[in-house]
Computed example of a mutant assay.
Amino acid sequence: MTEAPDGPPPRLKKRGHSRAEFEATVADIEAQVRASNARLEKRAGRNLPMAILIGLGLGGGLLVSLLLVKDLFVVFAGALLVFTAFELASALRFAGRDVPRIATVVAALAVGPASFYWLEDGHWLVTLAGMALVSVWRVVETLWPKHRAPRAEVVKDIFAGIFVQGYVVFLGSFALLLAGHEGGEWWALGFLVVVVSTDIGAYASGLLLGKHKMAPRISPKKTWEGFIGSVAAAVISGILVAVFMIQQPVWVGLLFGVVLALTATLGDLSESLIKRDLGIKDISTWLPGHGGFLDRVDSVLPSAAAAYAFYLIFA
């Protein structure tokens, strides 16, 4: 009798070999994708796929709140103000400034609805009240031993808390003030479209063409090529917004785009200067691919005030 050959039949050997080859191919592709993503993230400075997903989520919330039920914009934008103010206050605390976070959140929570429903009076009065609340809160805290500090340090803490209210809450709530006016939701949406276009234009042109550093000591990745791309994108989107969204002539849209490109760049550089002064890369890690809320809305803050000025002049 002939003995059976050792090992599996030839067909099974072939199947096993094919499966091993398939798994090796999949592993190789996965390694290449990870390596490509790592190179892209190193060059772009962010996790691009996650950044896109987060951006789409924020954009979807913005569109729903502004176009379907305008009052929802109070919730959407108000929540952004609260989270951004809280994260900047936290970053300042980590840097040694005792900024009262509860008072910061309460003040930020009040300014949004006041700006939207009470317009200019609510915007200014509640912002000032919020600054006063944060300041008094810090003074009262000194009654407890763990919050006591030399007078000069307490004064610095108070100014840091006022800075959060002025930089984040006051500037950001101009978007709510704008949306609260008759037809202002289209101006609010329009300026946000231009700012997002500016960011995309700067990112794409800087990534592809960027060679000459714009402000290497403040923002090492920002280039003049990226700035030119941001202005071009802002002008194009500004004209489209003017003609099709806010019913303004082409020259207003051109001016709108140029001004918002400048304010968006100023906002980006200002936030980079804050992070450099604090010695951190991102204000927080709450938004994967973006860093924190302030990293996402830094361009919006001064641009909201500029858009409100345009509304007052041209609407």
Rank of each mutant, 00 (worst) to 15 (best):
V193G: 01
E120G: 01
F116A: 09
Y117H: 06
W186F: 15
T142I: 02
P113L: 11
L209G: 00
F163S: 14
V136R: 03
V196A: 13
V164G: 00
W187H: 03
G122H: 04
E185M: 07
V139W: 04
P113S: 08
G78N: 01
A188P: 03
R93D: 10
A77M: 12
A132H: 08
T104I: 05
S205A: 13
V195P: 05
P113D: 03
S115R: 04
V82A: 05
L119H: 11
I102G: 11
L92F: 14
I162K: 04
A110Q: 11
R151Y: 13
S173K: 03
I200C: 06
A202F: 11
A110S: 12
F83Q: 09
A204R: 00
L192Y: 03
V194K: 07
L177E: 04
G112S: 14
Y167V: 00
S90V: 14
L189Q: 04
R97D: 10
L92I: 01
I158C: 08
V169W: 00
V134W: 02
L133T: 04
F83C: 07
L178D: 01
P145H: 14
S205M: 09
V155F: 14
W187F: 06
G180R: 00
A77R: 05
I102C: 08
L109T: 10
L125R: 10
E141S: 13
P100H: 09
S173M: 13
W186R: 13
F191T: 02
L207T: 05
V195M: 09
L189A: 10
V196K: 13
W186M: 08
F159L: 12
V168G: 03
V106G: 06
L177S: 08
G183H: 12
V140F: 10
T84L: 12
A107L: 11
G183K: 08
V154D: 01
S173W: 05
V154H: 12
F76I: 00
W118A: 14
L143Y: 15
E141Q: 14
F94C: 15
V155M: 13
F73D: 02
W124K: 06
T104Q: 00
T104L: 02
W124Y: 13
A95L: 02
A91C: 11
L80N: 06
S135G: 07
L80V: 15
L192A: 04
A91V: 12
V155P: 11
S205Q: 04
I102A: 14
R101Q: 15
S173L: 06
K146F: 07
G184T: 10
